[in-house]
């Protein structure tokens, strides 16, 4: 028996979510009195692999394979399901991001394993195996019983704190053979923004809405984000108008994020927007309309003109960063 966790890397380093996943897996393994095996596909630095151990992995399976350079859902699911059988995994933990959503359901069918998607706490119970998951786009949470022998959990991002203690995990470099007939997709073109903070990985997000009035008003907001080491985001009308790239759209139909701090500037806070940000640990609302629903969701609020407030926040951050 073991808990298997699929980690993800980006430009040679693990994404923050990978450490969260392993920390979470370690918590689940403690409940089940078993060990954690982490799987990494693709080239990552050695000290990064060691850090997975510090987060609680007992064993790390490291796979580098030319056929697995781009994500083919079918091929990835096949490789992970083979490892999971070999490791006798009873719980498999994957991120609830785009990659996880692509792999988890395929794995589910291969292993006849029920999926608990978007879990944000350790299982509530191990017998029957019950998880706590987001439903109704964050307006409700469900206690979901998974009845199958093997369980797949996809973990909501930034919902579980990293736990790091020095630990030596064993690292196994595994050669896998990929059934070429399973690789049916090919990637023709990649557009990646290097060096930018990933919105879904960011601890702090500064987001602008229609209350920003014009795309020309964004520079101070971007400056605030840069000073805070934050990613920038926006509401749906802003991306629909083309004021900001649609990758920045957070909300029900856009990205669903859960940073430690979400600063909403000129965003009224429609239900659909809140669905994308309600799991943020702290929400700050800056809006000229004191009745805007965003203030119901926020812990800190300023009622006033964003154009006057943002530059003052920029100066205040510069002051504390001196």
């Amino acid at each position: 028996m073991s808990v298997l966790v699929y980690t993800e890397n980006w430009e040679g380093k693990f994404k923050k979510l990978s450490f969260e996943l392993v920390s979470y897996a370690s918590g689940v393994a403690k409940m089940l009195n078993t060990t954690v095996t982490a799987v990494s596909i693709g080239k990552v630095e050695d000290n990064e692999l060691k850090r997975l151990g510090n987060c609680g992995a007992n064993k790390i399976i490291n796979i580098i394979n030319d056929q697995l350079i781009t994500l083919d859902n079918q091929a990835y699911a096949s490789v992970i399901s083979d490892i999971s059988k070999k490791e006798n995994a009873t719980v498999i933990i994957i991120s609830n991001n785009n990659t996880g959503k692509a792999i988890a359901p395929r794995l589910s069918v291969r292993l006849k394993a029920g999926v608990g998607s978007g879990v944000s706490r350790l299982p509530l119970n191990i017998n029957p195996f019950t998880v706590y998951k987001r439903t109704y786009s964050g307006n409700a949470f469900a206690h979901l019983v998974i009845k199958s022998d093997v369980k797949i959990l996809t973990l909501a991002q930034n919902s579980f704190d990293l736990i790091e203690t020095a630990n030596n995990a064993s690292i196994e470099n595994l050669n896998v053979s990929v059934d070429g007939s399973l690789v049916k997709t090919s990637v023709k073109d990649v557009q990646k923004q290097s060096g930018k903070i990933l919105l879904t990985d960011a601890d702090i997000v500064v987001s602008g809405g229609r209350g920003m009035k014009s795309p020309d008003n964004w520079p101070p907001l971007v400056e605030l984000a840069t000073l805070l080491g934050a990613a920038t985001a926006c509401s749906r009308p802003v991306s629909d108008e083309g004021w900001r790239p649609h990758e920045e759209h957070t909300g029900q139909t856009g990205k669903i994020i859960a940073p430690n701090l979400y600063i909403a500037v000129g965003i009224s806070g429609a239900t659909q927007h809140l669905a994308g940000i309600s799991s943020s640990k702290f929400i700050v609302a800056i809006n000229s309309d004191k009745d805007a629903p965003i203030f119901q969701a926020a812990q800190y609020g300023i009622v006033g003109d964003a154009m006057k407030i943002i530059p003052k926040l920029v100066s205040a951050v510069k002051e504390i960063r001196k």
Partner: peptide, 23 residues
Amino acid sequence: EPLTQIIEFEKPTPRAACKYIDA
């Protein structure tokens, strides 16, 4: 046979009231 079943729903934990800061 379904593999999963919801046995209970709960509301999200309510947030503390908003603390207002002078503009």
